[in-house]
């Protein structure tokens, strides 16, 4: 007991206090991560219990010559990049509008968040119906407006399928940006804009010189979170297209999901996931470096 009392006076005490959290992190984060990585070097097909064993880089080599992997990789990049750019732009627009404190903006602020409240699954089914080639309201509207000659099967044409899913995702995800950017905007002193008005800077210059730089940290954090979310979640695409037509909307997360739960090939699916994991790590590290959000704003 006395030894404990003495120990508590030393600086080792704090390491001792950290042990429980360290154990928890190891158990909940490190172990599953490493286990998942380990599977990617093994043959693990549930329907072939006899084939279990270490296979080294077999899955990674197979991936190299798997055309679907490359298509999925390309689609993932296009899907995530386009969706994030759209969501960020829409989110910024919405946040700027909401930041004006005009009458009614409070109700509008809640309305604008609605898409984000919808679970992916619900949003997916809703849009599947809205864009339906036979019943879809969107088709109806476009035909009435004279934009389309006849109803279009958006998800049946590889030229429009990916674009359509990107729009749905943008609709679903932009409130996330709107919310975070609004919080960021609230933190920008009004005086900066008034100074800019006196200095004669127009709206574009204000956006470029004040708003965006002041939101840099928020934007960087939001983009990273959203990219991770988009890369990892196949649910919207699973509902809207299932990766089709052909492989036009196949992305890595969906491919990994299908490999694991349709083919029961957990080894290859884990290898796909490890590639996603590493790609995301590289992206996040590079992005943080480029946007220099780790240092003080004045140092760059």
């Amino acid at each position: 007991m006395r030894a404990l009392g003495e120990l508590s006076e030393t600086r080792y005490w704090m390491y001792l206090l950290l042990l429980p959290s360290l154990a928890l992190i190891l158990l909940v984060i490190a172990y599953p991560t490493l286990y998942g990585m380990a599977i990617s070097f093994r043959e693990m097909r549930l329907t072939r219990p006899g084939l279990d064993g270490w296979v080294g880089f077999k899955h990674y080599l197979a991936m190299w010559s798997d055309p679907v992997f490359w298509i999925a990789l390309k689609n993932t990049v296009v899907w995530v990049a386009a969706a994030v750019v759209l969501e960020l732009s829409l989110g910024l627009l919405a946040a700027t509008a909401l930041n004006r404190d005009l009458p009614g903006t409070k109700i509008f602020a809640v309305l604008i968040l609605l898409p984000y409240f919808l679970p992916n699954v619900v949003a997916g089914h809703m849009w599947a119906l809205l864009l339906d080639p036979r019943l879809g309201v969107i088709n109806d509207l476009l035909v009435r407006l004279g934009v389309l000659q006849a109803y279009k099967a958006w998800f049946a044409d590889p030229n429009t399928a990916l674009a359509a899913t990107i729009l749905v995702e943008a609709w679903h995800g932009f409130p996330f940006f709107a919310l975070l950017l609004l919080a960021g905007l609230k933190g920008i002193p009004e005086d900066l804009y008034r100074a800019a008005a006196v200095d004669g800077a127009g709206l574009a210059a204000q956006l470029r010189l004040i708003t965006l730089p002041m939101l840099k940290t928020v934007i960087a954090a939001a983009v990273i979170l959203r990219v991770i979310g988009l890369v990892n979640s196949p649910d919207l695409l699973l509902i809207l297209t299932g990766g089709g037509p052909g492989d036009a909307t196949q992305v890595l997360s969906l491919y990994a999901f299908q490999t694991a739960y349709k083919e029961f090939n957990f080894g290859y699916a884990s290898a796909l996931s490890v590639v996603m994991f590493v790609t995301l790590m590289i992206f996040a590290a590079g992005y943080i470096r480029i946007s220099r959000i780790t240092k003080g704003q004045g140092d760059d």
């Binding site: 329907t47 072939r48 679907v68 049946a156 044409d157 590889p158 299932g242 990766g243 089709g244 037509p245 052909g246 492989d247 036009a248 196949q250 299908q258 490999t259 349709k262 083919e263 029961f264 090939n265």
Partner: peptide
């Protein structure tokens, strides 16, 4: 046969779709 479901959904479906869409 073992693997029928995975092959059907993950290979036959996209392969045939890509014929319909003119990709192959």
């Amino acid at each position: 046969f073992v693997g029928a479901a995975g092959w059907s959904e993950n290979v036959v479906n996209p392969a045939f779709q890509s014929v319909l869409t003119g990709q192959s």
